[in-house]
Amino acid sequence: MTEHDGALLEVRDLAVVFDGFRAIDGIDFTVQHGELRFLIGPNGAGKTTLIDVITGLTKPAAGSVRFEGIDLVGRKEHEIVRMGVGRTFQTSVVFEKLTVVENLDLAASFRRPLWSLARRRRGVSDAVAAAMEITGLDALAGRPAGVLSHGQRQWLEIGMLIAQRPRLLLLDEPVAGMSADERSRTGLLLTEIAKDHTVIVIEHDMEFLRRYASVVTVLHEGKVLTEGSVDEVRADPHVQEVYLGRAREEAGAGDHDARGTAAVGTSAGEVK
């Protein structure tokens, strides 16, 4: 992979080993400022593990992860958040008994001193107002998060990241379980967010990828298989073999996991 001047994120020679298994095996990965990068690959390819390393959740066996030139390896999770890196997980994490605006305000408060948290806030901060506007949750500001739909909860979690004003957002399967309309709204949301942030999205939905991705990185068995535009990735014979081969294996094994089967099936159909 070619070195890029002024890259926001640079991963070099990264390796992660779990009980002798190399979950990540020498990954080089570069993301520029302002990119909306999609990260794809079969289950077990190393996608979430890569995000775990970037955010300090997993310690690598070797390699470096530089964010604006500063190595993140060895730093604690909260330090990395304060440096401007935020993430979501596959399962949304919101405070169900708090309202939408209270969730957003709590997320934004991590930059405030501890003594100020005991004071009752008056009005809505600019960061919270901006997060509500971009996610389209303005009308639901006073609703408890526990009554939101699945898609709305995902948008709230993304809004909670935005309220922290990160420079890099890492989103793990943000449209999983969403309706077609919610996926479309999420795609537009990601496109809007990418105007002011750098965004990396882990995704299985190839139709969603086709509509909203510009640059795609494909992982396979802990390595970068290929990288390029959606059309370049779909046309790559190695990608076709990985996805089509995995689809055949799962069909033969009678794997009925809903998400995995649907994802692989769509992928195989897309790259034919």
Rank of each mutant, 00 (worst) to 15 (best):
F38G: 07
V175D: 02
P237D: 15
V53A: 11
A247F: 13
S267C: 02
I27G: 03
L170A: 06
L50S: 06
T2P: 10
S267M: 12
G177R: 12
L209F: 06
V218P: 04
F29E: 05
P174T: 00
L117Y: 00
D126F: 07
R234A: 10
D28T: 10
D25G: 09
S267A: 12
T198G: 02
H78R: 10
L106R: 05
L188Q: 04
G123I: 08
K223H: 00
A213D: 02
N103S: 12
M1D: 08
T266C: 10
R122L: 11
G265H: 06
P60K: 13
A7L: 13
L104W: 01
L104V: 02
K272F: 02
A23S: 12
E10Y: 03
G228T: 00
A7H: 12
F95K: 10
L137W: 02
G151T: 09
N103Y: 14
E77S: 13
D105Y: 01
V242P: 01
L209M: 12
T217V: 08
Q240E: 06
V216S: 05
P60L: 09
G6E: 11
R121Q: 09
V224C: 01
I80V: 10
W115T: 05
D196Y: 01
L98A: 12
T48G: 02
A235H: 14
L188S: 02
D25M: 11
D255W: 04
Q90K: 03
R12P: 11
I158E: 09
I202E: 01
D126T: 11
V218E: 00
V17M: 15
A258P: 08
R143P: 02
V93Y: 01
V85T: 09
V199H: 00
G142S: 06
L72W: 13
H238E: 13
A268I: 04
A61I: 03
F95V: 14
P166M: 02
E68D: 14
A176D: 04
L36N: 05
G151R: 15
T226M: 01
